[in-house]
Simulated assay, not measured.
Amino acid sequence: MMQARRFEGRSVIVTGAGSGIGAATAQAFAAEGALVTLAELDPVKGAAVRAAIIEQGGKALFVETDAADEGSVKGMIEAACAAHGPVRHAFNNVGLSRPGSLEELSLEDWNWTMRISLTSVFLAMKYEVPVMRTNGGGTIVNTASMSGRIYTPSAAPSYSAAKAGVIHLSQYASCAYAKDNIRVNSVLPGLTATPLITSMFTTEQQGVIASEHQMIHRAVEPREVAAAVLFLSSDEAAMITGRGLEVAGGGSHPG
């Protein structure tokens, strides 16, 4: 007997869906029967992920989206609902950083990182929650980072602060909307072998960096984060909310 797919016919949003964790998660949702809306700023990347999903027999809509612009986010969610029905699951995954220590960071770079990595999550939830509340509930998973929980010297202070904000914002929303049958969690990846990381470091170098904070001395694969997101979004996790799930090879010890 064929096993039922966990997200068959359900409307799902993935932001930052053009590469890395976002692309892996979008494809994983589609493989489980979801109707996926790909929110991505880069039209080439977004179209490529959509094509890959369609080629595998899945269903996906690409909406060019600036995740830190309120009108763009609102329009994307409206398009997702129009195409696939009310959004039932959301994975808010946008996050970037500009380097620099506390002394080196300009206010512009601080604000830029906060806008991309924290404000984007706020805006997504601002428009996802009303849809879910009106239609019986849903799930939200936000991408935080181990840098938001522990000190990691490779992360800029602005990124660490933004991701700490994502963790707390997720917890806040989980408490505020549990009565509406909306579960909100976050995932906290360690060093992850995204295209950006693999372009900067060899596999051996990734292992050295990971060994500074993890018991498993290798980078996390995007598909491994995707598996955690799908579990938290699934009916199997019906009693899990307000949690930050570390996907980091045991990397919870202090830096």
Rank of each mutant, 00 (worst) to 15 (best):
A176R: 15
K163S: 03
A90L: 04
G138F: 04
K163L: 02
R218K: 13
E236S: 12
I240E: 08
M215W: 09
P195V: 08
L96R: 11
A30Q: 05
A82C: 07
T65A: 05
A60Q: 07
H84Q: 02
A155P: 04
S145M: 08
T25Q: 01
I77N: 00
A226L: 07
T25S: 05
T143M: 08
A237E: 10
T37V: 12
S106W: 05
A4S: 13
G16V: 05
T203F: 11
Q206M: 15
P157K: 11
P157I: 12
A83V: 02
A162H: 09
S252W: 12
F7P: 00
A79H: 01
A227M: 06
E246R: 10
E78H: 11
D109V: 06
Q56E: 15
V129Y: 06
A52L: 13
A52R: 14
F231N: 10
V229K: 02
G57F: 09
R10Y: 01
L123Q: 07
Q206E: 14
A90V: 08
A162L: 11
V247E: 07
H168Y: 14
T15R: 01
V12F: 03
R149G: 11
A52K: 12
M76S: 09
G71E: 01
E224P: 06
R149C: 11
I197Q: 15
A30C: 04
L105I: 10
